[in-house]
Each structure stands twice: as C-alpha cells, then as structure tokens.
Deep mutational scan, measured.
Amino acid sequence: DIIVVALYDYEAIHHEDLSFQKGDQMVVLEESGEWWKARSLATRKEGYIPSNYVARVD
C-alpha cells in the first residue's frame, strides 16, 4: 500500500473530496493526475485528495 501523510489541512470542497488535517495518514487507492482517491487511516472515510497536499511515507 502507498501511505501518505498530510502536509497541510484540507477542507473538502465537493462531496466526493476527503477532508484531512496536517499529519493525518491516508492509504492511496488510486493515483490519477492531481487528485488521488484515498482512505483515511483514522476515520476509514474515502474520497479524493489534492496530491500536492501530501507526501509519501517511506
């Protein structure tokens, strides 16, 4: 699995987006352009995240 960590807070604009806080970790389900589908490890919610707001966890 690809795990990413949020570098900034993000508040969902569209209903299919996933809100998150800086430091939250998410599993990337699908990488497509600038918006990736991800699942929050904390809340288990799924949605689209801006890929430039996150960094991969090695």
Rank of each mutant, 00 (worst) to 15 (best):
D1Y: 05
D1Q: 15
I2M: 10
I2R: 05
I2G: 04
I3E: 11
I3N: 05
I3H: 02
I3F: 14
I3G: 03
V4W: 06
V4C: 13
V4H: 12
V5P: 00
V5L: 08
V5Y: 09
A6W: 00
A6K: 01
A6C: 06
A6F: 02
A6S: 05
L7E: 13
L7R: 09
Y8I: 10
Y8R: 11
Y8D: 12
Y8T: 05
Y8G: 05
Y8M: 09
Y8W: 13
D9F: 02
D9C: 03
Y10D: 03
Y10C: 07
Y10M: 04
Y10Q: 02
Y10A: 02
Y10R: 09
E11H: 15
E11Y: 04
E11P: 08
E11N: 13
E11Q: 14
E11F: 09
E11G: 08
A12L: 02
A12D: 02
I13T: 06
H14D: 13
H14I: 08
H14P: 02
H14W: 04
H15G: 11
H15A: 10
H15V: 14
E16A: 07
E16M: 09
E16W: 10
E16C: 06
E16P: 11
D17Y: 07
D17W: 07
D17K: 15
S19D: 07
S19E: 08
S19P: 13
F20T: 00
F20Y: 02
F20I: 04
F20C: 12
F20D: 02
F20G: 00
F20V: 09
F20E: 00
Q21R: 13
Q21H: 15
Q21K: 14
Q21N: 09
Q21W: 03
Q21D: 02
Q21C: 04
K22M: 07
K22N: 08
K22V: 12
K22E: 11
K22P: 05
G23S: 05
G23W: 04
G23I: 00
D24C: 07
D24H: 05
D24R: 00
D24I: 02
D24T: 03
Q25P: 09
Q25E: 15
Q25F: 04
Q25G: 04
Q25Y: 10
M26S: 00
M26W: 01
M26L: 11
M26I: 05
M26G: 00
M26D: 01
V27S: 06
V27I: 15
V27F: 04
V27A: 12
V28E: 00
V28T: 02
V28S: 01
L29M: 11
L29P: 02
L29I: 09
L29G: 05
L29T: 14
L29K: 08
L29Q: 13
E30S: 03
E31K: 15
E31I: 15
E31M: 06
E31D: 07
E31R: 06
E31Q: 05
E31S: 11
S32H: 15
S32C: 07
G33Y: 02
G33A: 06
G33N: 05
G33K: 11
W35P: 05
W35R: 15
W35V: 14
W35L: 12
W35Y: 08
W35H: 14
W35G: 06
K37Y: 04
K37N: 02
A38L: 03
A38P: 00
R39H: 09
R39F: 05
R39E: 07
R39L: 11
R39S: 08
S40H: 14
S40A: 14
S40Y: 02
S40Q: 09
L41C: 12
L41G: 04
L41N: 04
L41D: 04
L41V: 12
L41I: 14
A42I: 12
A42M: 10
A42N: 15
A42K: 14
A42C: 02
T43H: 07
T43L: 06
T43D: 12
T43N: 10
T43K: 04
R44S: 14
R44N: 08
R44T: 14
R44M: 14
R44L: 13
R44E: 12
K45A: 13
K45C: 13
E46K: 09
E46R: 06
E46V: 11
E46W: 06
G47P: 03
G47S: 00
G47T: 01
G47W: 00
G47C: 01
Y48D: 04
Y48I: 15
Y48L: 15
Y48P: 01
I49Q: 00
I49M: 01
P50F: 09
P50A: 04
P50T: 02
P50K: 14
P50C: 06
P50R: 13
S51K: 11
S51L: 05
S51A: 14
S51G: 10
S51V: 11
S51N: 09
S51H: 11
N52H: 11
N52S: 12
N52C: 10
N52Q: 09
N52R: 13
N52V: 08
Y53P: 00
Y53M: 07
Y53Q: 11
Y53W: 10
Y53H: 08
V54M: 06
V54S: 01
V54P: 00
V54H: 01
V54C: 06
V54E: 00
A55M: 12
A55F: 12
A55V: 08
A55I: 08
A55G: 10
A55Y: 14
A55R: 12
A55C: 05
A55K: 05
R56Q: 12
R56K: 09
R56P: 05
V57W: 06
V57K: 14
V57E: 05
V57Q: 10
V57C: 12
V57F: 09
D58P: 08
D58S: 15
